[in-house]
């Protein structure tokens, strides 16, 4: 009898509503490993965590700022891609092809090392003091590089989302006298948001991971701080294990948040 009652308690569809997404346990488990290592062997594990902690903030900051800017840039580019104006379509298509066709690492190196050089030569050519003495801020260049690359991918997600909404929706809006902009704002985009949320969430997670590449352009993110720690202490296994676990915690949390947002938007309405 007890067994039968026990079976009934297996969470079904009704119970799922009140249950925490069980994959959160994975986050807890990984965080637990980090904690356990730090507590049982403070040297070197806790030292590593302390050493890279400012890098964690940089990684999170660079990712969040880039992501927000990418959301805006992607929308602008997507609207250009579906524009009736041939020039906008042409220029945004070229941008997307270029930005997707070059490795992110190469793009970052270009923005940090080549771009300022170009500006300086340009300044010398025009004898403009401000441009001649131009020096790139690594953080700004890193964010610029990430946005330039991810904006192209994001625009394709927006475009697919917008185009997934049936043509009849736009026609109905336009037949009521709405302008193109009003139809986009009130009818198309609110419906497209639901379609694009899952892939946009995945882009965020990719961006978080790819942000480690900014370590090569003098940004003191988690990866760079890890390398610095390694250079001073020569304990690669412990260092990179810790860095890997810290990234894993962040991406697992992000994945849970994305799943939660998805579930929330899918259950609302209808």
């Amino acid at each position: 009898m007890d067994d039968e009652n026990g079976l009934e308690k297996i969470p079904g569809r009704g119970a799922a509503k009140y249950q925490i997404d069980h994959w959160w346990w994975l986050v807890v488990a990984v965080a637990g490993i980090v904690l356990l290592l730090s507590l049982t062997q403070p040297d070197p594990y806790w030292r590593i965590v302390k050493f890279v902690s400012d890098g964690v903030l940089v990684t999170v900051g660079v990712t969040l700022v880039s992501f927000l800017l990418t959301l805006i840039l992607g929308l602008v580019i997507a609207l250009g891609r579906i524009s009736k104006n041939g020039f906008f379509r042409w220029i945004t298509t070229i941008y997307v092809e270029v930005a997707r066709g070059i490795p992110l690492l190469v793009q970052l190196l270009f923005w940090y090392f080549a771009f300022p050089s170009l500006i300086q030569s340009f300044g010398r050519l025009l004898s403009l003091q401000i441009l001649e003495r131009y020096h790139a801020n690594p953080y700004i260049m890193a964010i610029l590089g990430l946005c330039f690359c991810y904006g192209a991918y994001m625009s394709e997600i927006y475009r697919a989302g917008i185009q997934s909404i049936s043509k009849g929706q736009n026609e109905a809006a336009r037949s009521l006298g709405m302008t193109h902009g009003q139809a986009m704002r009130y009818i198309i985009l609110p419906q497209a948001v639901k379609v694009i949320l899952p892939p946009v969430g995945n882009e965020f997670i990719s961006l978080l991971k790819d942000s480690s590449l900014v370590s090569v352009v003098a940004v003191a993110d988690m990866t760079r701080r890890g390398r610095e720690f390694m250079a001073a202490n020569f304990i690669p296994v412990e260092t990179w294990l810790m860095i890997a676990l810290l990234y894993l915690i962040m991406t697992l949390i992000a994945a849970r948040v994305v799943a939660w947002i998805e579930k929330k938007t899918q259950t609302e309405e209808r």
């Binding site: 049936s166 929706q169 026609e171 109905a172 809006a173 037949s175 009521l176 709405m178 309405e269």
Partner: peptide, 28 residues
Amino acid sequence: VGMVFQSFNLFPHLTVLENVTLAQKVVR
């Protein structure tokens, strides 16, 4: 000119009331 379509084309993300009031508010 009002238009009625074969496939209705109501706005699925808006309530029935909002379907009828949206264009009145933003266009009229």
